[in-house]
Simulated scan of single mutants.
Amino acid sequence: MSSPILPFTEANSKRVASLFRQALRTAFDSSLKFDAYRKETIKIRAQFEANKTVNDPSELEKIIQATQGKLAEWKHPDPYITPCRPGGTKYQRNIPVERGPLVPGDW
């Protein structure tokens, strides 16, 4: 059984930052216009700022678990993927040609 991560540690900061980035990506996947996305990002930031000073490790774990559950609930079925990244529309579209002999065979 792992012990809970203590508040205000580097590991905890990375964990919360990762959740924040996931929340922003989830909001980006769900919004069609930048104005709507910007409003959602402000709400997300306010929710994270509200829990910024939590000192109790058990309460912190509950908040992180609730955040992970909310992210799983709101996950978009067809998320946006940057075109050149794996799974994107342009990924490996122009595969480099293999530079072998021009005429195959043994002469």
Results as ranks from 00 to 15, higher is better:
residue 1 M to R: 15
residue 1 M to L: 14
residue 2 S to H: 15
residue 3 S to C: 14
residue 5 I to D: 04
residue 5 I to L: 15
residue 7 P to C: 05
residue 7 P to G: 14
residue 7 P to E: 01
residue 7 P to S: 04
residue 8 F to A: 09
residue 8 F to E: 12
residue 9 T to Q: 03
residue 10 E to T: 14
residue 10 E to C: 03
residue 10 E to N: 11
residue 11 A to K: 15
residue 11 A to P: 03
residue 12 N to K: 13
residue 12 N to H: 11
residue 12 N to A: 11
residue 13 S to E: 10
residue 14 K to C: 04
residue 14 K to L: 13
residue 14 K to H: 15
residue 15 R to E: 10
residue 16 V to K: 00
residue 16 V to N: 00
residue 16 V to Q: 01
residue 16 V to S: 01
residue 17 A to L: 15
residue 17 A to W: 04
residue 18 S to E: 08
residue 18 S to H: 08
residue 18 S to I: 02
residue 20 F to G: 03
residue 20 F to T: 08
residue 21 R to Y: 09
residue 21 R to G: 14
residue 22 Q to E: 08
residue 22 Q to W: 01
residue 23 A to W: 00
residue 23 A to C: 05
residue 24 L to F: 06
residue 25 R to I: 09
residue 25 R to D: 12
residue 28 F to D: 03
residue 28 F to T: 00
residue 31 S to C: 13
residue 31 S to K: 09
residue 31 S to V: 05
residue 32 L to A: 11
residue 32 L to C: 06
residue 33 K to T: 15
residue 33 K to W: 07
residue 34 F to W: 12
residue 36 A to L: 11
residue 36 A to E: 15
residue 37 Y to P: 01
residue 37 Y to V: 04
residue 38 R to S: 11
residue 39 K to N: 08
residue 39 K to P: 02
residue 39 K to W: 05
residue 39 K to L: 11
residue 39 K to R: 05
residue 40 E to S: 07
residue 40 E to L: 10
residue 42 I to D: 08
residue 42 I to L: 06
residue 42 I to H: 01
residue 43 K to Y: 01
residue 43 K to V: 08
residue 43 K to G: 09
residue 44 I to M: 07
residue 46 A to P: 00
residue 46 A to T: 03
residue 47 Q to I: 05
residue 48 F to R: 03
residue 48 F to E: 01
residue 48 F to I: 04
residue 49 E to P: 02
residue 49 E to F: 03
residue 51 N to G: 08
residue 52 K to Q: 13
residue 52 K to H: 10
residue 52 K to C: 07
residue 52 K to Y: 02
residue 53 T to G: 02
residue 53 T to K: 14
residue 54 V to A: 00
residue 55 N to F: 08
residue 55 N to V: 12
residue 56 D to W: 02
residue 59 E to Q: 13
residue 60 L to A: 05
residue 61 E to Y: 00
residue 61 E to V: 11
residue 62 K to G: 05
residue 64 I to G: 02
residue 67 T to L: 06
residue 69 G to I: 04
residue 71 L to H: 01
residue 71 L to S: 00
residue 72 A to C: 04
residue 74 W to S: 10
residue 75 K to D: 00
residue 76 H to Y: 10
residue 76 H to L: 07
residue 76 H to M: 06
residue 77 P to R: 05
residue 77 P to V: 06
residue 79 P to N: 06
residue 79 P to D: 07
residue 80 Y to A: 10
residue 80 Y to H: 12
residue 81 I to K: 11
residue 82 T to Y: 10
residue 82 T to V: 03
residue 82 T to C: 07
residue 83 P to W: 03
residue 83 P to L: 02
residue 83 P to N: 04
residue 83 P to R: 06
residue 84 C to W: 12
residue 84 C to P: 03
residue 84 C to I: 06
residue 84 C to Q: 12
residue 85 R to D: 12
residue 85 R to H: 14
residue 85 R to C: 05
residue 86 P to E: 02
residue 88 G to D: 06
residue 89 T to F: 08
residue 91 Y to E: 10
residue 92 Q to W: 04
residue 92 Q to V: 03
residue 94 N to A: 13
residue 95 I to V: 15
residue 95 I to W: 13
residue 97 V to G: 04
residue 98 E to P: 04
residue 99 R to A: 13
residue 99 R to W: 07
residue 99 R to H: 15
residue 100 G to C: 11
residue 101 P to N: 09
residue 102 L to E: 12
residue 102 L to T: 04
residue 104 P to T: 08
residue 104 P to A: 07
residue 104 P to C: 09
residue 105 G to S: 05
residue 106 D to S: 11
residue 106 D to C: 08
residue 106 D to N: 14
residue 107 W to N: 08
residue 107 W to I: 09
